[in-house]
């Protein structure tokens, strides 16, 4: 009886096809890292600014330490991309006058944490504007007319005060 010869070679004929499939897959799903921009306006130096007392219910106190720990109105809050301060912002701006967000940080606080906090503040302001738009006009903020948007913006006014503590 004749023995059958076994072919031990691996068939690499489809190697190129698989490679191209992988290449096309990664080309389609890849997203490039975007850069974002946060615009802020600094105040004049303290000698050129007014000083006075502010009612406590119009101040939101935030502490940021060097270990990424965040304290908002004496409550520990996780510092992450989901940070929501809309309720706290509503509390300090509901009187119809300008509120103050007072951020105290340590010299060793990390810049990444600071950006996360400022980003959270801006996002929370947006959330609050949407909530007010829903409550008053039953619509999203973006779908409102310019004068309606201005009226809502007028209700949520606050300044950010920053200081370095030891």
């Amino acid at each position: 009886m004749r023995k059958r010869r076994l072919n031990h070679e691996t068939d690499t004929g489809l190697f190129a096809d698989v490679s191209f499939l992988l290449l096309i897959f990664f080309m389609m799903v890849t997203t490039f890292h975007k850069t974002y921009r946060l615009d802020m306006r600094l105040p004049p130096l303290p000698e050129n600014t007014r000083s006075g007392n502010m009612p406590k219910d119009r101040i939101l106190k935030i502490y940021l330490n060097g270990d990424s720990a965040l304290l908002i109105d004496e409550e520990v809050v996780p510092l992450d991309a989901g940070l929501d301060m809309s309720a706290a912002l509503d509390k300090i701006t509901r009187h119809g006058t300008k509120g103050i967000v007072s951020i105290s940080m340590m010299p060793t606080s990390k810049y990444a944490d600071y950006i996360l906090l400022i980003d959270g503040l801006k996002r929370s302001k947006k959330t609050l504007m949407n909530q007010k738009a829903k409550a008053i006009y039953d619509a999203d903020f973006h779908s409102l007319k310019a004068d309606q948007q201005a009226a809502i913006r007028d209700q949520i006014k606050f300044s950010i005060s920053e200081k370095e503590i030891q």
Partner: peptide
């Protein structure tokens, strides 16, 4: 903060922070 103070002393108040990957 030192950079911001130096900018303020030169009456430059408009700043833009460029950063990666946050949900602005």
């Amino acid at each position: 903060n030192a950079v911001k103070k130096a900018l303020q002393s030169l009456t430059i108040y408009q700043v833009s922070y460029i950063h990666n990957g946050l949900n602005v």
